[in-house]
């Protein structure tokens, strides 16, 4: 059973003359426990794929399934218990007026857990934050600490699939390293499936087993990471991306 199966997914925004086809018949599948990367430049539709899976986009057609359950227009409560998402900008993904305690407490309550206090402490220590952070507001946290809180929030319902939307692109490189290590550790400990979107081939290469390259809403190439590291891409666009990425770090 694949963790995520996408077949002929189309996503569009607007209508009539304004219609923009953000994703054009994309198909891929992610095995359970795998870490899969979606790479592309801005506007390639990579984040839109994630949002469509998460149910944040209404205008789509095609077949999507997660852990064997086909997805319809509405997501069930069970879906949100199994699939969670981490957003790109940790400054925008936490409510500015809610303390860490309230963020995590509300999520745990929504999923019907009872031992909330103990769980909050455990989640915070799992993401490498002490309990001293529990009653802080987002503005009292650094970018990396905020992203850790966002990861704790995503882990709260004990999901099996985590969607990662550029989780480190707003962070400094040294903080990025910490967050990527944390994500790797959590995957190893909990056997999570990751679907990660990034524009940074270095990050994707570090985190993922297989990648899909997107351009103008289409998946132009699927390749595994060993092939990518050896710079053996078939599609010219992938080659171009790899080339730019290598040249900028030499």
């Amino acid at each position: 059973m694949s963790a995520i199966g996408i077949r002929d997914l189309n996503v569009w925004f607007g209508e009539g003359a304004e219609l923009v086809r953000a994703v054009k018949s994309a198909s891929f599948s992610v095995a359970e426990g795998e870490s899969f990367g979606l790479v592309g430049e801005s506007g390639s539709g990579k984040s839109t794929v994630l949002r469509a899976i998460a149910g944040l986009v209404d205008s789509w057609n095609g077949d999507m399934s997660v852990l064997g359950e086909p997805l319809g227009r509405r997501r069930s409560a069970a879906f949100y218990k199994r699939v969670q998402m981490v957003f790109q900008d940790p400054y925008a993904s936490l409510h500015p007026r809610h303390t860490v305690d309230r963020v995590l407490g509300e999520v745990l309550k929504l999923h019907g857990f009872s031992d909330i206090d103990a769980r909050i402490d455990r989640l915070l220590s799992d993401v490498g934050l002490g309990t001293g952070f529990r009653f802080r507001y987002p503005h009292q946290l650094s970018g990396g600490q905020r992203q850790r809180v966002a990861i704790a929030r995503a882990l709260a319902p004990e999901p099996r699939v985590v969607l990662l939307d550029e989780p480190t692109s707003a962070l400094d490189v040294s903080v990025q390293a910490e967050i990527l290590n944390l994500l790797s550790d959590l995957r190893a400990e909990r056997g999570l499936t990751y679907l990660m979107v990034s524009h940074d081939l270095g990050v994707i290469g570090h985190m993922c087993d297989r990648i899909a390259v997107m351009q103008h809403g289409e998946i132009v190439e699927l390749l595994d990471v060993a092939k990518m590291r050896a710079l053996q891409a078939d599609h010219p666009y992938t080659k171009h991306l790899l080339d730019s990425s290598i040249r900028s770090i030499r």
Partner: peptide, 9 residues
């Protein structure tokens, strides 16, 4: 942050 809480159902 609204999307995030939506994803918690």
């Amino acid at each position: 942050f609204i999307h995030a809480i939506k994803l918690q159902g």
